[in-house]
Amino acid sequence: MEIFGVSLQGLAGQLLIGLINGSFYAVLSLGLAVIFGQLNIINFAHGALYMMGAFLAWIGLTHFGINYWAALLLVPLLIGLLGIVIERALLRWLYQLDHLYGLLLTFGLALIIEGLFRYYFGISGESYEAPEALRGGVDLGFMFLPLYRGWVVVASLVVCLATWFIIERTKLGAYLRAGTENPKLVQALGINVPLMITLTYGFGVALAGFAGVLAAPILQVNPLMGSNLIIVVFAVVVIGGMGSILGSIVTGLGLGLVEALTRVVYPEASAVVIFVIMVIVLLVRPAGLFGREN
């Protein structure tokens, strides 16, 4: 059976790749959305911290014998701690200023982090073996599903949905939502908003670190892997709506699929389709598909 001149198997394969890319878009743009909501900062260092997550997993495995599963837990914690240091030392001085300053500062940070990794590891890239339990795959009849890729989609979805649940359905989430709207009043009601902001940044970048570990076995671990991805992720955030939690998840996955379908139908456009959508969304609905117009 053929669709668009492509076999069903080929189509399913492309859609799976789209779903995987979409999972990374979703986890990364979710982190950006959470951070933007509380800090009003567009975290350009996100891609560099994602890259760092992949590298820390690789360093852990090759130098310290820390396996994949331990890295999946430890690396986000480490990146989160680094985020807390960054927020306390640098970002907190910028909250009174225009968004642009936060963007410039985090962009500078991204360049420094990437520069350091290029200096120490070069740009040829390292490879990271998938964990034993997730090697191989299953035949679904219409396609062959590599286990690790299935795991990436499931793990990303679980993390995204858990984050959504915490923000939209719990007391802690109510603090965060209220803090997004009016941090001064939330603090005047007795909530330690500066601490909440620090932890939010830590959590947001921990998500980037988590995505980095997930990516290590399927992408080359390379100092530039973050900057390649982050531009697309920013487009996802703009399309979904700055700061919208559900928006970043749905848009991330959706655009991964759109990209994949474009690759099937008209491969030449697959690299730009997301940006074309971004332009259209900005013209028609500047606050993004899920954003609240002010």
Partner: peptide, 24 residues
């Protein structure tokens, strides 16, 4: 003191613009 610590001394504040949160 920062505002949240002052509030924790037992102060309740009702602002002029009411400050009801739309996302809650």
């Amino acid at each position: 003191m920062p505002p949240h610590r002052i509030a924790r001394l037992g102060i309740g504040y009702c602002p002029e613009e009411r400050g009801i949160f739309a996302s809650l």
